[in-house]
């Protein structure tokens, strides 16, 4: 204890706060505040940029004002260019993502549920995991030609490892007590899978799908830099080489928005599919 200060008896009062007295209003207000904050950050950022650009604080050749970028975007939309690029990239991302998630999940189950398969394949797959996937692009282009398939495959390979590793770990770390409880009632094989393994694995799957879809966007942009005649990545690279900074920024913004939208879509599906993870109280 430190030196004693003068104390006098005090009554500590513990009573309902705003959240307890009127939970519904509290939750609504908190929701509104959080929503406003989430909008405020990008808006302030854009406004600051616009201001700095107009004041001539930044080189307009490299940092055009947001209003100019927006004009450019409208123009690209009217000519159909934006739509074409957006569709091309989205299809590649979704196809690669789906292929990667499904194959990653299959591998996770095969390795997570069988010691023998794990012994046979885990070291091999782990070694492959560390190979940078983009480095394989030239090889894939050689093997599969310049079409869509090598691009989709590259996305799928990236997603595959992410999903495989995390889902396999999720299966291996399911608490013994749940498995024992299920077994004690006679569950095995398919019923064990349906009642324990699958639901215990789902939260990890969704977390990793959310991470993976972001990575899929990154990869496709990289691929399109190198080899494509349409797509957002192609547009960014191409605009840069033609010194069209406005268009380049349109591409960058579109990529950011795509990543955001895809990530949220996965998250919402996850919230819908995993009712027990939102069982916790809000206040």
């Amino acid at each position: 204890m430190t030196s004693q200060t003068e104390t006098s008896p005090t009554a500590l009062r513990i009573e309902p706060g705003m959240a307890e007295r009127d939970p519904s209003t509290f939750l609504r207000r908190r929701g509104r505040v959080e929503f406003a904050l989430s909008l405020a950050t990008p808006i302030i950022f854009v406004l600051a940029w616009e201001f700095a650009s107009r004041m001539g604080w930044m080189d307009k050749r490299f940092f055009p004002a947001p209003t100019n970028i927006f004009d450019s975007a409208v123009n690209m939309y009217q000519t159909g260019l934006l739509e074409k690029d957006l569709i091309a990239s989205t299809l590649r991302i979704l196809a690669g993502f789906a292929l990667g998630v499904v194959s990653g999940l299959i591998a996770a189950l095969a390795l997570g549920l069988s010691r023998k398969t794990r012994a046979a394949l885990e070291p091999f797959l782990s070694a492959l995991y560390t190979v940078p996937k983009l480095a394989l692009l030239p090889l894939l282009l050689l093997i599969f030609g310049l079409g869509e398939f090598p691009k989709v495959l590259l996305v799928a390979m990236t997603v595959f490892f992410q999903v495989w590793i995390s889902c396999m770990e999720a299966i291996l770390t399911i608490p013994e007590t749940y498995k024992e409880a299920a077994r004690s009632f006679g569950a095995k094989g398919w019923s064990m899978f349906r009642h324990v393994t699958w639901p215990a694995l789902l939260p990890q799957l969704f977390i990793n799908m959310r991470i993976s879809i972001g990575i899929a966007v990154l990869v496709i942009v990289g691929v399109e830099f190198v080899q494509a005649s349409e797509g957002i990545g192609y547009r960014i690279w191409h605009s840069w080489s033609l010194f069209q900074a406005n268009r380049m920024y349109v591409g960058i913004c579109v990529v950011a928005i795509m990543g955001y939208v895809f990530g949220y879509a996965v998250r919402w599906v996850g919230i819908w599919a995993l009712p027990w993870t939102r069982a916790r109280t809000k206040v």
């Binding site: 409880a181 004690s184 009632f185 324990v196 639901p199 215990a200 027990w276």
Partner: peptide
């Protein structure tokens, strides 16, 4: 049928689904 020391109720099932589990099996 066993009542476990640490309950071992499944967090991903509702109370009702938990109780029905043994019957389903």
């Amino acid at each position: 049928a066993m009542v476990f020391q640490d309950y071992a109720v499944f967090p991903w099932k509702t109370i009702e689904q938990n109780v029905r589990f043994g019957l389903e099996m």
